[in-house]
Design a protein around this nucleic acid. Sequence first.
DNA 1: CGTTGATTTGATTAGATTCAACATATGTGG
DNA 2: CCACATATGTTGAATCTAATCAAATCAACG
Lengths: 220, 220
Amino acid sequence: MSNHLNCLTKVPIFKSLSKEEMNEVLKIASHKKHQKGDLIFNEGDMIRQLFVVSEGTVKISKYSYEGKEQVLHLLNHGDFFGELSLFKDQETTSSAEVIKDSVICTLDSLKLRNLIEHNPEISFKILLELSKRLENTETKLKYYALSNSSEKLAKLLLDLEKNNIVIFPVNKSILASNIGITSETFSRTLKKFINNKYIETISNQKIIIKNKEALIELIY
Amino acid sequence: MSNHLNCLTKVPIFKSLSKEEMNEVLKIASHKKHQKGDLIFNEGDMIRQLFVVSEGTVKISKYSYEGKEQVLHLLNHGDFFGELSLFKDQETTSSAEVIKDSVICTLDSLKLRNLIEHNPEISFKILLELSKRLENTETKLKYYALSNSSEKLAKLLLDLEKNNIVIFPVNKSILASNIGITSETFSRTLKKFINNKYIETISNQKIIIKNKEALIELIY
DNA sequence: CGTTGATTTGATTAGATTCAACATATGTGG
DNA sequence: CCACATATGTTGAATCTAATCAAATCAACG
């Protein structure tokens, strides 16, 4: 049916299924390539699928009536979205936009629901995933509500950092919106960090953390 | 074992269980009365239970290092918390405080996990509940990040409103923190709404909405 | 009726947004 | 591979909103 077994076999929530179970899932799945800029769905759209990101990056956002964007999640390989459709046909309350060319699998929610009801395993995995995402969102909430832009940026850098190297996975505007500040403030605050010798820039999307303690200090 | 069958029989996530299943759940449950002000757990505590609110109100919050509070959720009858403990022993990343005298049931997470694995029903219900909470938190996030205090308050009033009557379920400071503003700003913005004849106050915790359209206009 | 906690009000200030201009980076077709 | 077009990023200056701090008032409860 699909040369994108990837979609499902390599995705955490389905990984542990038996061969027969996997075949069941495959029956209700299809996949599609999407280009950067494609809109998978828009706030208010009716959706009846669970979407699983097999390749690429998808941005989940909400917009204010003035058009200001709040990025909720950046989803990569293995992440899913549209889980509320599992329970009932659902007008989404957010938009999903492809920001890096992607392969996305869709699973019919009615059929998936059926499957899940007989596979506690899957249900449990989705449960785990959602719990984490909830915790994540709650933490974000705390930062948005309680922090100034330096704290927010420090937290972002520490989240992205690996061996003191930070590579921005998406452009700075999106990152800014992800932590709830404007791109101008993002730029200015980054500069402040550079002036303070907390960080050094290697390229536009790569920086080195020079004083991690200072950043940690900021968020505690 | 307990005269608080309430804890479980009346709580949505367990409501549909058969008698035998319910007996299984009862075996791993216990309940306890808590007074206003009691701390169920604190950020960083290790928890190994799922908590279900049978009566009263519990406030889930995070605090910044400066002590500023962000209320994440206000939980009432039937709501649960501590779901991450289902997956592994978990240091909580938030605090739970009783703000109205409560009866709280605790279910050992290891045993509950076991039970869930054989009861897709329960798993599915928790899944639904978490999905809703996630959506809720995401919406909150949008408001925190994208709205000014008038929009936030308008949204709060519309959320709480029933037949144009708003009764504040908890004190104003907590509500303010719930929508991510200070109590001073809360007070001032409420006053502005009164001056604009959007609302009228009946008592300290009761107001009437006089111009709902104006409030709706604010949030769109 | 006094004490404690909650709420309101006022004055000041800090911090981020906005808007506009400029600079840099990225991508495309010739 | 260059030149242009478009998208992304940076900087400055003005403005504005909500936070802060301090004080006054109000409400609830033993």
